[in-house]
Amino acid sequence: MDLRQIYSQIIMENSRSNRHRYEMPDATATERGYNPSCGDDIHLSIKIEDDVITDASFTGTGCAISQASTSLLCGLIKGKPVTEAKELIKTFLGMIKGEITDDSILEEELEDAVAFKNISTMPQRVRCAVLAWRTLDLIIAKETGTEMTE
């Protein structure tokens, strides 16, 4: 596999994007996501109004994979109902585990975040890619009193 399938244009651009990188003083919930072994460290904030995620942002540091993944996640969930965001988490984690491979489903649901599909071939980088998604999963579990995704 070519490295550029991992460090693709979508991932490189989003890793440097500041579009969703800001503090959110009126957030409904903020959680820290941290990978102790490599030092990826983010704070993910979301605002929920009438069961809809009306704003999503993050601050923090980490590798290109973790930062791009977090930025894409924020862009994807903004404006979506919480229940739909939960489904997106399941789809993303399913893709990373190699359990969901149908490109048409992945592209329709995850849009640009489908760029992380190839991470499933690099087990040592999976934690970087899923950090923001696991953090969002924790926020949703706490806010809705439901179980986290397997």
Binding site: L3, I6, Y7, D40, G62, C63, I65, R125
Partner: peptide, 9 residues
Amino acid sequence: AHPHDVATI
């Protein structure tokens, strides 16, 4: 370049 990216490359 983050060290984890450097190490992967």
